[in-house]
Design a protein around this nucleic acid. Sequence first.
DNA 1: AGCTGAATGTAAATCGATTCATTCGTCATG
DNA 2: CATGACGAATGAATCGATTTACATTCAGCT
Lengths: 355, 355
Amino acid sequence: MAREEKPKRATIHDVARVAGVSAATVSKVLRSVGSVKQENAQRVREAVAQLGYRMDPLASGLRNENRKIIGAVVPDLESPFFGALVTGLERAAEAAGYAMIVASSRESEDREADLVARMNDWRVAGTVLMPVRSERGRGAEQLRALGMQAVLVDRVTADGEFDTVTADNYAASASVAELLLSAGHRHVLLHGATQVSKSVRTRLAGFADRAAALDPSVRVDRLLSDDDTETQRRAIRDYLDGFAAGKGPTAVFSLSQYSTLLVLSELRRRGVRVPDDMALVGFDDAEWMHTTWPAITAVAQPVEAIAERAVATLLARVEAGSSAFPVQHLEPCKVIERESTLSRSVPAQSSLPGE
Amino acid sequence: MAREEKPKRATIHDVARVAGVSAATVSKVLRSVGSVKQENAQRVREAVAQLGYRMDPLASGLRNENRKIIGAVVPDLESPFFGALVTGLERAAEAAGYAMIVASSRESEDREADLVARMNDWRVAGTVLMPVRSERGRGAEQLRALGMQAVLVDRVTADGEFDTVTADNYAASASVAELLLSAGHRHVLLHGATQVSKSVRTRLAGFADRAAALDPSVRVDRLLSDDDTETQRRAIRDYLDGFAAGKGPTAVFSLSQYSTLLVLSELRRRGVRVPDDMALVGFDDAEWMHTTWPAITAVAQPVEAIAERAVATLLARVEAGSSAFPVQHLEPCKVIERESTLSRSVPAQSSLPGE
DNA sequence: AGCTGAATGTAAATCGATTCATTCGTCATG
DNA sequence: CATGACGAATGAATCGATTTACATTCAGCT
């Protein structure tokens, strides 16, 4: 019940004393630099084990210019996407021997700039910034102002100063266009909820460009908005009401996870059967999509690859001091076909030219 | 393109020089302790502003026994629940002037113990542990062994050494029992997926106890398992197949988020209408539950309250040095009624005694 | 034996902020 | 006028590890 006295931790000097060498020697053994006699090295290792010594990363970082910490600033920790991303970053950082400090900007640009400054206070080796807005936001601005090393991830395109890593939204959306057109769809609705962000616009362009290239006669409608949920629902209803029975789009490509949810629920509400009456593809996969019935076809983002690439890119600059021109990395997505695009009754209105 | 030279940061000595006082005085002004002449204090503040000085938390923490950092160890960052919890913790910690280090144990007990030790390396003031298993897991064991200050959150009951904070699973489940029974349901299925954890068992007991108390004749079936998804799906089908049409349970109470998803998808697959044929209540709310159609009635956990309570409890021990007997905090949940329990056609088989 | 260069070891300085023990004024009081 | 008492300021020590600059040892060669 009463807390036992906290046993004070052994310091590097304690280890040195037990091993009968100097602290400097212990330090050399621990970070395996310089040369130490086999025998002494052994005794140090024994002393470490005996005392249960563990280095204080704080004290270590103080003297060392090169602090083994990387910072991560994320717009939102409540979404599974960023949760997974952060998990991946952590794993990669740890593998490289770095600790990671995470902070959520909670979708606020002011807070984002603030957090970047705070990362600089910690003298992190580098920062992974997943911006609220884009590479032109306040966070990136702050990074530049402070002359920090960083990688920009997810809601960005290329940048003149920092490396960037994103899912290949454009190519993935083009694949979706192929998938839907080759299944015979000739009238598709593109729906985007939440912010009309850079990613969403890229996805839209990827689909539209490829669709037009495959068949110029295909009709692509767009429904984009930043309004609140209720307004968006009404917009969907109004759109669908504008078509007589048997007319209207035969497929929906929703450009974000929330958008998929919204569209699906409106379809269900009015009794539109998926996929029989309407095919559905969503950008960004989620657990509920493969568990629900019918399971939803979705574009899965390569979260793990993005995370690994981000850390690798960052550390390449930090450690190797590479100052090459910044690179934009695009990681390929995967389209996972599920029940929502199963063409049981292919809505055949026309067939692909040449197929 | 070429990085500008990183401008070296001003130290407390630079500030002292500019202000024409000693570093010690600057320190006193900055942390507002001791006594400093008004005039000097003012000049220090001006120097700080002029140089854009910011304290190095690392250097500060080194000398200070009291490092303003709290650690958080979470079993999983990809689930919105823990994501929200961590966000709340971060907010609360920041409000109290603490930095927070987050790490995910990824549902591994070994890793959990490891992370706790690592938090100790950082000499954190205290740790918020959301255990993989329970207060008897490896993480908690490590906390005890190292004599650390900590709060245990979420997958725990009372503990003899640490304060604990959880949602009041028992009471919330009892409310669900009241809700369903008073709507006329007399045959309910309790379904639990994922681990048969402490939380799930508490929820089960809460429902069963209250249901029995209200009406001893009510039938409560249980379907619990730790198997893979496909096996669980089959179990649900087999269970439902065991009843003739018009017979069987009229409501399902699913004891975890994933369980809700699973049950709902099986109901949809076999064309069981919710809520007309079957009412559904899920423990743990999620975005898709209020967006989907029909929207699902769910028990919302007070994430923000849990987070605040956890940090408050921890800091009370750390700062005030309180060594009172450990307390178990139960935060009340809220049952959010939505369409999935709307009794359009109340399945009246019997009525509540006395109602 | 004497010399050289490499290998090995260590005392001390350092990182940036905090705190302790002391000094320096100033003003009140016996 | 001497003696305290108290407010204010500061030099130096400290936190724990790393690194620098230098000392020592040793093997190999003339």
